[in-house]
């Protein structure tokens, strides 16, 4: 394989890892975002947490592997992004720590104040993490100031522009919808009925922010539209994503929540693909001088390393997919609380 082909392959594989992460952790972040609003009793809050109890940790590994693969395949991009978004990453870490331990700690004490504290920590962590992911995507799209070595030269406030914040809100609503649909599959009775209105609300908010983001992208980011002209087949992804968005209410009306959940998964996968298409070949876009952008070609590791990593992925990922499948199958069906539950 030529060096260029290896770089493109790893760009696609990073996209696959990011899609895996957004699809899977997306629903458990969403469950966290809905946590203070939908479940009303202590039992319902426990059901909410336990719906993702066995799954969230494995889901988060997709992010860790995405980060590790970025470090290995595109070290220049890893260094640029992580140091450039220092404060955002520190907030993200604190958010991820809070939600992880809040699930583990909440049920260990009966005290209502204790449980309320961890309920909010769970929500705060999930909400902040989702918002930051969206803001990061928004910044990658619209570009940040870089010096000639790929170092971010702006301030934290530069990263909180209207476009990144819009993408952040869209991500929160998307994950809330995705999490709501997941929780709908895992619950029964009145709790499940209450989820319906929240699925509509999050779908509505997502629709609005999705349309605004689309308009803003077309208006503000000419690179993105250029890429769509360059790859005409990308229209298939656009149409597919829009159809998946529209399919969610259709499935809800026809009482097919499983298909609705799959459709929201399709929306996420479509959006990550569109993000990748709009970005290509950049990993971090420089504002102003485009030669300063960190691209998949100037940020990549050596061909030797990319090749070794490809072997590692080819050996490891079939196992990962197999036993992930087995584990999701093991925990299928409605949530049942037991001795070992949260």
């Amino acid at each position: 394989m030529s060096y260029e082909a290896l770089c493109v392959t790893w760009f696609i594989l990073e996209g696959v890892l990011l899609t895996g992460y957004a699809l899977l952790d997306g629903f458990d972040l969403g469950v966290g975002i809905l946590h203070p609003f939908v479940p009303r009793t202590d039992l319902e809050r426990r059901i909410s947490m336990n719906s993702i109890g066995p799954l969230w940790d494995g889901n988060e590994v997709w992010l860790v592997t995405f980060g590790g693969a970025l470090f290995a395949a595109f070290p220049e991009a890893y260094a640029s992004v992580f140091s450039g978004f220092y404060t955002a990453f520190m907030l993200l870490l604190i958010a991820l720590i809070s939600r992880a331990v809040s699930m583990e700690f909440r049920s260990k004490m009966e005290s209502p104040a204790w449980r309320r504290f961890w309920d909010w920590a769970f929500f705060g962590g999930s909400f902040t993490a989702s918002l930051l992911f969206g803001v990061a995507v928004g910044n990658a799209m619209i570009g940040v100031p870089l010096d000639d070595a790929g170092n971010f030269t702006g301030s934290v406030l530069d990263q909180l522009g209207p476009y990144p914040l819009l993408v952040g809100v869209m991500t929160v609503s998307l994950f809330a919808m995705h999490g709501g649909l997941f929780l709908y599959l895992k619950t029964e009775g009145e709790f499940q009925q209450r989820l319906r209105e929240w699925m509509w609300r999050s779908w509505g908010l997502f629709m609005v922010t999705f349309m605004l983001t689309t308009i803003a992208t077309v208006a503000l980011i000419p690179r993105a539209t250029e890429n769509f002209r360059r790859f005409p087949w990308a229209i298939v992804v656009v149409v597919g994503t829009v159809l998946a968005v529209a399919n969610i209410p259709r499935c809800l009306f026809r009482d097919k929540p499983g298909l609705a959940f799959l459709s929201s998964g399709g929306v996420i996968a479509g959006l990550v693909a569109l993000f990748g298409l709009a970005l290509y070949p950049n990993l971090v876009t420089a504002t102003g001088d485009p030669t300063r952008s960190v691209t998949i070609f100037n940020a990549a590791s050596s061909p030797k390393t990319l090749g070794i990593m490809l072997i590692i992925a080819a050996v490891g990922m079939p196992f990962v997919l197999t036993y992930s499948g087995v584990i999701y199958w093991t925990f299928r069906g409605k949530v049942k609380l037991g001795d070992h539950s949260y």
């Binding site: 940790d57 590994v61 590790g68 470090f71 260094a79 590791s301 590692i312 036993y323």
Partner: peptide
């Protein structure tokens, strides 16, 4: 990154998925 990153990525693919997946069971 070219050297050290590969070890970290291998850790993710070979170790973390295995641990966290079966930890659920």
């Amino acid at each position: 990154g070219d050297v050290f990153g590969s070890a970290l990525a291998a850790e993710g693919i070979f170790a973390f998925f295995l641990e966290s997946g079966f930890l659920a069971v």
